[in-house]
Design a protein around this nucleic acid. Sequence first.
RNA 1: GCCGGAUUAGCUCAGUCGGUAGAGCAACUGAUUUGUAAUCAGUGGGUCGGCGGUUCAAAUCCGUCAUCCGGCACCA
Length: 646
Amino acid sequence: MDNLENQKNILISFPDGKKKEFSKGIKGLEIAGNISKSLEKKSVAMKVNGEFKDLSDEINNDSKIEIVTIESEDGLEIMRHTLTAQVLAKAIKNLYPKSKLAIGPTIENGFYYDVLLEKPLSNEDLPKIEKEMKKIVQVGNKIKKSYVNKQEALKLFSEKGETYKVDIIKESKQENNFQIYFQENTNFFDLCYGPHLPNLKHVGSFKLTKVAGAYWKGDSKNEMLQRIYGTAWKNEDDLKKYLNILEEAEKRDHRKIGKKLELFHLQEEAVGSVFWHDKGWKIFLEIEAYIRKKLNAQGYKEVKTPQIIDRTLWEKSGHWTKFKENMFLAKGDDNKVLALKPMNCPGHVEIFKQGLKSYRDLPIRMAEFGSCHRNEPSGALHGIMRVRQFTQDDAHIFCTESQVTEESLKFCDLLREIYKDFGFKELKVKFSDRPKERAGTDQVWDKAEKALLKAVKEAKLKYELNPGEGAFYGPKLEFVLTDAIGRDWQCGTLQMDFVLPERLEATYIDENGQKKYPVMLHRAILGSLERWIGIIIEQYSGKFPIWLAPTQITICTITEKNCNYAKAIDKSLKDAGIRTELDNRNEKIGYKIREHSDKKVPIILVVGDKENSTESVSIRRLGNKDFEQMKFNEFIKFFRKELEIK
RNA sequence: GCCGGAUUAGCUCAGUCGGUAGAGCAACUGAUUUGUAAUCAGUGGGUCGGCGGUUCAAAUCCGUCAUCCGGCACCA
């Protein structure tokens, strides 16, 4: 009976729809070879019914099979995985025999491996490790696999002293089929969920990029391991391309550009707070004015709430318990403890509570450019992107449950419109639903999630589910945009809150004369203005569009003779509300052009004798080598029109 | 907060073996009055992040604190 069973054929179907019979127990590599020799050569793994498997794995049932080649995205991923688990790990063990391996996953563009070492690494150690890796790759060993059960696995890794692997095996729910990968002719083996390249000849170009500390299991209570990061690509060209992108990102660094363009500075005496210089502050004010205009048009009412508020309010709102460590405190009279506000919502609720509210008053959309202080951990600070004092484009919408979808929808539209104006085209949305620990009944959560989901769908936004990641008081949407060089930034948020109004006893009177708690929508589009400006500095690489540029036009004279004409032009432009500078220094025009181009001024007007006598200007735009001439009167009209287009 | 690295002129950076500092740009002065990405010459500028230690002698070696950078953890 058993024999008959074993000889039975199985039916394999391929992605192109074709089907073929094979004998039971056939291996992936044999199937690839059966299709073509070239496929066999390129193949590195397979997908069996959508699940990744090694080519050495047997297939015993009718299955859908997809052969993964080294040229595919999946192949690249497997190569990276093998590179970290088999090559980097082995290199570390060769160089540091007493090290203990933890985990080595792939990440975007590369991989890392976490290890415990006797002595922490520094960047100077990377070339040495890289060299060792190259040696291992050059040998080009085959990678083989065996299956063991839990007990065997525990024994293997206990004997080896790999305590982290032992830990992983112990915590695993599975009893059998632990995969042990090893390289032929070596004593190296490692536990891994695979799959791996069948041999190291498929490894492409790679580079170790940085070392860092990282907590075991990502928990700061655990010991710190050494994390070695690397990047890997199909070939040298792809690797170089990627390294170029990194270089480009470095050039765009908002800290560098901020200094060069004199936008802001940071200093020791005010760690985590921005000193805005006039040029940076112009950008800040321009953005604030822009948002204010948008909010006014949408029926928001702007307010301003106190900077310092007694701790009792934070206790009532629930923030004190959770966040008091991160609040800046001030001493008041009679030993009162006051806190610099870390957020605006309780303040807004207090405004809502003034006077009796009717359902007819709702929705109330309360906005504030709220300046907040949070004592962020020192290691979290980053330029102006993560600071201790920041300004939110914050607003809270107090509404009835039936208004939630419409308000959410309106918000999504506004958010998209605003992102578009800043040149962001791609938008991702994460929908975070109920977390394990939460406030409010399941019925309320059902209602809230349904309403929010309806809004995303009606807004025609693509979203991905982020299960269990909602706030404790309600589900939320997180808006992630992609910048000019493909990096993601999470900025906007929309959170539904059924808790805070109740905690702070904010009510309205409904149609039946009953007191009810309103729903509160917490929402921000830019998030923090400081961070937003950091992001757009990098998005534009310092070349701000005209409406945001701190200096929109610089007027350059050719000689002293043109000074009066230049001054007259400067005055007319300033009178028209245009941000200009006048450069009438005794310098060559090439020198001036270079300097102002370097400062990313979008338009340079050159005036010499020719322009003076014809009341015209020469217009040179940033990034253009040539220039055009225009009558000054026309130019001013033309420019104003350009300003209206964002 | 944790791990590693860094901190030298206004800016970007060099500084060997421990022998008390150097470049380019910028600034200032003078000459040049110039047509679309750097005109020439000269001058000044530093408690080498702070404090302490080792040493005849410290930018350099050691300790410590601060800040910044790369990650981790955190992010109401």
